[in-house]
Design a protein around this nucleic acid. Structure first.
Lengths: 227, 227
DNA sequence: GTCTATAAAGTGATAGAC
DNA sequence: GTCTATCACTTTATAGAC
């Protein structure tokens, strides 16, 4: 089985990039099995046989697509997450719980999630990721290890700190999912959202509204009814 | 183009049922395009040519699948929704806002949503519905008109009543989505949920935990931080 | 109402020229 | 690194026997 060539030729690099770009769109639209290597090659403007040469075959290209998605999503969320991670270390080291500050960090993260999921490129990603969520393959490992896992861990620790609960407890983790779910639904149930709200698209104005409602919800959930 | 026969033969009925059952599973697993009529017929234990005879072709069978899903989900959620709808009419007619009672109704609905999405049959449905949400076709109309629209409307009115807001206002509708999103995420991000919580499955015990957390969240969101 | 058989088109992989 | 050509297989739809 042919593997990705080790030499770094500018021409070949360009071909690989074009193929991955095209594969994100076509795999997203048609799914792994229905997507044909011919249509991917056509969209990429390269020869069909080059998929075998550069990625070893259709499955290899599919995995390369998820590495691409992971890297791109990390570009959106990474800076915010890292900044919070750093400040969170100081909070844990201090004696004060600083619940309000933790909630503020969660607000930053839900804002970023809503913005990321609403980005135009996210449309193709979502189809791929949602499929993997229902029926995880090797590609899901790359997603979880590359981005999702770290994000879940960070939000769980912030919630635990804000509510003085166990970050590894079941309730904290379930609560983490409900926080993310509030942002995720605007992508996963997109057709329903557009229809119910009579929106043509989720643009800058709509994103602001969503972010503001989720901020309010999160605040109420975490420091509204207690301590 | 052959249409569904008008005569009602027991033998043909059985064939149609088998084909729809099989189609839910195979379309769910492979998507519309990748699913082959041959594999559907094999799973159903009938001849491939009968898909053309009974449904006019592959697209006709696909639509029949969504009618089936709509009817089944309505069996889960319909009774709860109707009971609440009835009592809600009385609340609107009365002078008291009865916010706590409205929140109780929403709890019943989120409980039902979590239970429905976690049902084993929901696994195949979800793949189909999530695809339509990203890329709606004629099948989405049947879903929205048959079930989703009514559920959204009911929750929006309950939220508006509980919070004294406009049921048709953007904020109320966005809030409705965030409520549903908390239940939906346990299906739409299933692989992530199972992994983060180290669950093998979402069974009766897990459902109880999820329902309880969402109930608490909804209460905080709607009557925790205000009035 | 169900079957077999088949036509016409599309699939992924790959050998081999350049 | 890229191309053309082709193999072996699968796809949907349908004609026609029963």
């Amino acid at each position: 089985m042919a593997m990705r060539p080790t030499s770094v030729s500018p021409r070949g690099d360009q071909t690989r990039e074009s193929l991955i770009d095209a594969a994100v769109a076509v795999f997203g639209r048609d799914g792994f099995r229905a997507a044909s290597t011919r249509s991917i090659a056509d969209v990429a403007g390269v020869n069909q046989a080059l998929i075998g040469y550069h990625f070893g075959g259709k499955p290899g290209l599919y995995l390369a697509v998820f590495d691409r998605i992971t890297r791109r999503v990390a570009q959106y969320l990474g800076p915010v997450a890292q900044s919070i991670e750093q400040q969170f270390d100081e909070i844990v080291a201090s004696e004060d719980r600083q619940a309000a500050r933790c909630v503020g960090f969660i607000h930053q993260l839900t804002d970023a999630l809503v913005a990321t999921f609403s980005a135009p490129e996210s449309s193709a990603w979502a189809r791929l990721v949602l499929r993997e969520q229902q029926d995880p393959s090797e590609a899901f490992e790359r997603l979880y290890g590359g981005m999702i896992g770290g994000m879940l861990s960070l939000i769980s620790r912030l919630i635990a700190q804000a509510c003085a609960t166990d970050p590894n407890g079941v309730e904290t983790r379930v609560m983490t999912q409900t926080v993310i779910g509030q942002a995720l639904v605007f992508r996963s149930a997109r057709a329903t959202v557009l229809r119910q709200l009579d929106w043509q698209d989720i643009g800058a104005a709509e994103i602001k509204t969503i972010q503001s409602v989720i901020r309010r919800n999160v605040t109420a959930m975490l420091i509204g009814g207690r301590s």
